[in-house]
Computed example of a mutant assay.
Amino acid sequence: MGLLDRLNDDMKQAMKNKEKDKLSVLRMLKAALQNEAIKLGKSQLSEDEELTVLSRELKQRKDSLQEFENAGRTDLVEKAKAEIEIVQLYMPKQLTEEELLEIVKQTIAEVGASSKADMGKVMGAIMPKVKGKADGSLVNKLVQQQLSQ
């Protein structure tokens, strides 16, 4: 079952259960996926493209959450947290920090990086491997830690 089909089924279920907030987030996700397909001129997105859209939507919500927390808007913080939980249901299982650290070490060895000057090379090689499975800022932090040792 494709992601759009899964979203449609979950939207129907949310309507039946009168879950307005969940329905709203699912509609936003579906719209984002359809807009991306239109933008790319395709009738259906590949799994990789769907993952890119989901990652972007998740990142937007996490950024919003940070802004709301900084502004002290507890009402919006709760709403953003709920939206993040819903979006994460459609994301692949996230890597643990230990698993991610292993991938970082392997990638550094593969590209022969030895200093922070090689940061771009390492990030360019690692991000396709962990796409959708890890937060980019965490990957960046781990790569910097490894290259500064």
Rank of each mutant, 00 (worst) to 15 (best):
E97V: 11
K93E: 11
G112M: 14
A71I: 06
Q60S: 09
K79W: 14
L4D: 08
K93Q: 13
E110I: 10
L54Y: 04
Q66G: 05
D21Y: 12
M119Q: 03
Q34F: 03
M119K: 14
D5K: 13
V53C: 05
V130H: 04
K59Q: 10
L29N: 03
V25K: 00
M11V: 06
S114H: 14
A117P: 07
D135A: 13
K12I: 11
D75G: 15
V139M: 01
M1R: 11
R27G: 15
D48N: 12
Y90K: 06
G124H: 05
M127R: 13
S43H: 09
L138R: 13
E99S: 08
A134Q: 01
M123K: 08
Y90L: 07
L100Y: 00
Q144N: 11
L65G: 06
S148F: 04
S24R: 09
Q145F: 07
A134Y: 00
V53M: 05
R27E: 15
A125S: 15
R27H: 12
L3C: 07
L40N: 15
L23Y: 12
N35S: 08
E85G: 06
V143E: 00
G132N: 07
A31H: 09
Q66P: 01
D63K: 14
L3Y: 08
I38S: 06
A32W: 04
G124F: 02
M127F: 01
